[in-house]
């Protein structure tokens, strides 16, 4: 059975009040262990709502949802167990930092799991190392004295310290400078490749999606409108444009080159692929 399985998942906020808002409607989706899935969609399309279901911070108001074999339509589901398996990194996670030292902040999760202090120390060192923060240099510092990119990485380490099997990230690179972006995304890719984590990545950057993920789920107005391999989805530039979404900059460039008569391969998403495609089209080999 798939790791995450939702069928006709529906979520209505403030149900039964004049302010009720349908955020998700009939979402059917399944994610296998070991996948790297991108979730993309315009603002307000329900991306954040959807992923909060995956560790039971929100419960379905309709439909069926099973995550790691736990039935979440059941109000008595074992939520604690689930939250340990599925780590959720919110948008701007650095806003959740609160402890006096980086060490204590990352240790918050493991301590909530009632681990002994030795194990807590191991996990803190391990997860800080995973996000490229030196535990010896930064452990004793106040998290509020770090730079934006460092704070974010410490916050992500705080989730990794739970040792989840699944990592769900909501716009992890939003608001960072290009270098910070590059670093964070590189580390997420490494977590997937080296640690074997199942990763779900919410983004609204087509370039990030093209660089990182294999499979892309497109949400619009609370529904899944496309779901498939990245390359297939970016071939549907016109359908995406109707939804107010673009395609990666490189794909856009290839389209324009083709438009002006250079027969480059349309299946080109990264800079390296683009170099090859252009050389081929120009017969420079």
């Amino acid at each position: 059975m798939a790791l995450i399985e939702c069928r006709n998942l529906t979520h209505v906020y403030l149900k039964g009040t004049p302010l009720e808002a349908v955020a998700l409607q009939d979402v059917t989706l399944s994610v296998e262990a070991g996948e790297f899935v991108g979730i993309i969609g315009p603002t307000g399309s329900g991306k954040s709502t959807l992923i909060q279901h995956f560790n039971a911070l929100l419960r379905p108001t309709g439909g069926a949802l099973r995550v790691a074999g736990i039935d979440l339509a059941n109000p008595r589901a074992d939520v604690k167990n689930l939250r340990q398996q599925v780590g959720l990194v919110f948008q701007y996670p650095e806003h959740q930092l609160f402890e006096e030292t980086v060490y204590d902040d990352v240790a918050y999760g493991p301590r909530n799991l009632r681990l002994n202090e030795n194990e807590v120390g191991e996990r803190v060192a391990e997860s800080l190392a995973l996000v490229g923060v030196d535990p010896n240099r930064f452990g004793r510092r106040s998290p509020f004295s770090l730079s934006g990119g460092e704070m974010r990485r410490v916050a992500i380490a705080g989730v990794l310290a739970m040792r989840p099997r699944v990592l769900v990230l909501d716009e992890p690179a939003a608001g960072l400078d290009p270098k910070g972006k590059e670093e964070i995304l590189g580390q997420i890719r490494a977590l997937h490749q080296a640690q074997g984590l199942t990763v779900l990545l919410v983004t609204h950057s087509m370039d990030e999606a093209a660089q990182l993920v294999r499979r892309l789920v497109v949400l619009a107005r609370g529904r899944v409108v496309m779901d498939g391999p990245v390359r297939e989805i970016f071939r549907r530039a016109q359908d995406l444009a109707v939804l107010g979404l673009g395609i990666p900059a490189i794909a856009e460039l290839m389209l324009r080159l083709r438009g002006s008569g250079l027969p480059v391969s349309p299946d080109t998403l990264t800079v390296d692929e683009a170099r090859v495609a252009i050389r081929e089209a120009l017969r420079w080999n």
């Binding site: 939250r83 919110f90 909530n112 989730v159």
Partner: peptide, 13 residues
Amino acid sequence: EKIMKAQMARGAE
């Protein structure tokens, strides 16, 4: 609400 959820994701009760 958001902060409470973020801490719940790290095992807060």
